[in-house]
Design a protein around this nucleic acid. Structure first.
Lengths: 222, 222
DNA sequence: CCAAAAGTGTTCCGTCTACACCCATGG
DNA sequence: CCATGGGTGTAGACGGAACACTTTTGG
C-alpha cells in the first residue's frame, strides 16, 4: 500500500465549516461547544477529519450534511490553514470551507442535538484554535464575491422580497445601501425574477416576492 | 505523542509551487521533469512534502528557496487540492502556492541542476497530476489581484520602464492595454515612483526608469 | 386617518475608454 | 535623415452615488 512516499511523514487533515446564515437582518454564524479534547467546551466551528477514502470537498459535504441535514448547499473552499501549533493538541492541517444557508431551512432540533447556536457575526466570541482567523478570511471572500456572484440568494428562502435581499447585502458589506440604486441594480440581473406573489407579512401594503432563476445565471463560477 | 486523534487516519500533504516569471513580454512558468516515481519524467510543478515541524507556508518557502535560491518572494496560497485520486501513486493532498519572480534574478545554472525550464504560459504542456488545474486557478487569482495589488513589480527588476510594466499587465490580463490610459493610471499610484535614471538599452531616445516604493503602498493585503 | 413599509427617476460627478501626434536619438 | 520606441491630452460614454416623495392598507 505505501509504495512511493513512505519516507515522508503524514499529518492529520481536517475540514472546518464556516456556516453563515441570515435572520432578523443580521448575518449569523453557526458555532458550537467543542465536544472533544483538547479544548472541550470551547466555542468552535464544526469540523471533522478527512478520511482516507474521501476528497476534501466530499469531507466538507459530509460534515455539512451531518450538521444541517442539507445537501447541495452553496459551499466554497476558503483555504488551508497549516500553522504548526494551530491546534493545541496535535499537528493538524485544516482546510476551511464556507457555506451559506437559509436559517429557516435549518432544522431547529439539530441545534440542540449538536449543541449549536446561531450567533451574530458582530458578537463572535473567541473560538477554538485559529477559527476566528478562518471566519475573517471567509468574510473577506464573501465581500468580494457578493459583487460578482448571486451569493445572497443562498441566505434567503426560495421566495423573498427585495427589502430582504437588500438587508442581506447590507449585512455582508457591513454598510447601508441606497434603496433606489439597489433596486435599479437588481432589475438588470436576469437571474432574479419577479413573481406574481405578494408577501403581506411584513407590511400592510404587501411586497412583491422574487425568485432566483439559476438557469439565467451566466456568471463566472470560480 | 499521538494523544488525541489517534483513531483518525493521516494523509500525506505536499505543497506545489506555481512559479511565474516574465521575460520577452511573455508570462512564463517554471516547470521541470519529475524526478521520482510515479510519473517520473512527466512535466510537473516543483513541490515537496510538508514535514512534521513546518507550517504550510514554511514548507512552501523551503521549496521555493531550494528552487530559486531566493527568499522573500511574493508568494500566495492558491488553495488545497484534495481529490482522492489526484496523485497516481498514493493519496496526497496538495496545497498550491503561487510565486512571482523576476526571471533575470533567477540563477541560470539552477535550471540545469533541477532540470527546469521556463515555458510560455500559452504553450503549457500537459503536467503531472492536477497541476494544470492548479495553474489555471493561480491565473484566475492573478488576474483578480493585479487590479488591487501591485503584483506586477514582483515580476520585474528593481528598476523598470513603464513600457515593461505595461507588458506585464498585458501578459497577465491577456489583452492589450492603451498606453496613455495606462500611464495615467500609474501616475496616480504613489508606490510607483519615477527615478532620474534612464534606460537606453531598449530605445534610442531612452526611457525613464521607475521603482516600486513598498512603504508607500497602503493597500489591502489579503 | 395615520403609521409603516413598498415602490419609483433624475441629476451629478468621477472614472474608464477611445483615439493620434510629436519627441529624442543612434545608426 | 529616418526608423524606433518614448511620451503626452482631450472628448464622450458609462456607471455609481446622492437624493424625496407617493402609494397602499391594516389597525
Amino acid at each position: 500500500m505505501t509504495r512511493y512516499y513512505s519516507e515522508h511523514s503524514k499529518v492529520w487533515v481536517s475540514v472546518d465549516c464556516i456556516v453563515f446564515g441570515f435572520d432578523q437582518d443580521k448575518l449569523k454564524l453557526l458555532i458550537g461547544r467543542r465536544q472533544m479534547d483538547p479544548g472541550r467546551g470551547e466555542w468552535s466551528l464544526y469540523g471533522g477529519f478527512v478520511g482516507p477514502d474521501e476528497s476534501l470537498d466530499e469531507a466538507a459535504n459530509r460534515v455539512l450534511l451531518n450538521l444541517t441535514g442539507l445537501k447541495k448547499l452553496y459551499m466554497r473552499q476558503v483555504g488551508a490553514f497549516g500553522e504548526i501549533d494551530r491546534d493545541p493538541g496535535e499537528r493538524v492541517i485544516s482546510v476551511a470551507y464556507c457555506a451559506l444557508i437559509n436559517v429557516k431551512d435549518y432544522d431547529e432540533h439539530l441545534l440542540e442535538e449538536h449543541g449549536l447556536q446561531w450567533v451574530n457575526l458582530t458578537e463572535l466570541p473567541k473560538l477554538y484554535s485559529d477559527h476566528n482567523n478562518m471566519v475573517s478570511c471567509a468574510m473577506k471572500l464573501l465581500k468580494q464575491r457578493i459583487k460578482t456572484e448571486p451569493l445572497s440568494v443562498n441566505l434567503l428562502p426560495d421566495l423573498f422580497t427585495l427589502t430582504q435581499l437588500q438587508h442581506v447585502y447590507e449585512a455582508i458589506l457591513g454598510d447601508e445601501v441606497d434603496k433606489r440604486n439597489f433596486r435599479k441594480r437588481i432589475k438588470h440581473m436576469d437571474f432574479i425574477e419577479k413573481t406574481d406573489l405578494i408577501d403581506k407579512t411584513t407590511s400592510k401594503r404587501g411586497a412583491a416576492l422574487y425568485r432566483y432563476n439559476k438557469r439565467a445565471y451566466k456568471g463566472v463560477t470560480p
